[in-house]
């Protein structure tokens, strides 16, 4: 089996699991959310194909860009697509990812133990760095524009 077919099978399995979580956690019936999920799986397959046959950019770039284009105002069918995918809760999509990661995490535990507390410290600095630097730039630009 080639990479594209394999990817498609994985996406279908994860899509099915997500539909069940989406139903239990967020109250969207499986049939109700099916069109949206089909669109999302379709976008991902197109992304994998684009990565393989068009240009070897990260698949995630293609996938985000395709998702954006089909829901952009002015694109034919954008409201229909946006309405469909709205039935697939964003958080419902995160749970299966972290479940797969959780099942696989056991083999990284020794490494995680070694880095664990350091990562917590780093994440505090990462959040501070992002926030203060962005606020500083915004402040200077707003001042320059005379907005404040």
């Amino acid at each position: 089996m080639n990479k594209v077919t394999e990817s498609a099978i994985v996406l279908l399995i994860v899509g099915a699991i997500t539909l069940i979580g989406n139903w239990i956690g967020y109250g969207f019936g499986i049939m109700e959310a099916l069109p949206g999920m089909a669109v999302l799986v379709g976008i991902c397959i197109l992304g994998v194909l684009a990565n393989k046959y068009i240009y070897n950019l990260p698949t995630v770039l293609y996938v985000i860009t395709f998702g954006m284009i089909i829901t952009m105002p002015g694109v034919p069918g954008h409201e229909m697509f946006a309405g469909w995918v709205a039935k697939v809760n964003f958080l419902a999509l995160t749970t299966p990812i972290l479940a797969y990661a959780g099942v696989g995490i056991g083999k990284d535990l020794p490494a995680l133990k070694k880095t664990g507390w350091r990562i917590v410290v780093v994440s505090l600095f990462v959040m501070t760095g992002t926030y203060v630097a962005s606020a500083g730039i915004a402040h200077v630009v707003l001042k320059f524009l005379g907005e404040i």
Binding site: V14, C44, V63, G67, I70, F81, F90
Partner: peptide, 13 residues
């Protein structure tokens, strides 16, 4: 990737 597809659809509109 499924999450990223959904992410794109949050930005598009």
């Amino acid at each position: 990737m499924l999450l990223m597809a959904r992410y794109g659809t949050l930005v598009g509109p």
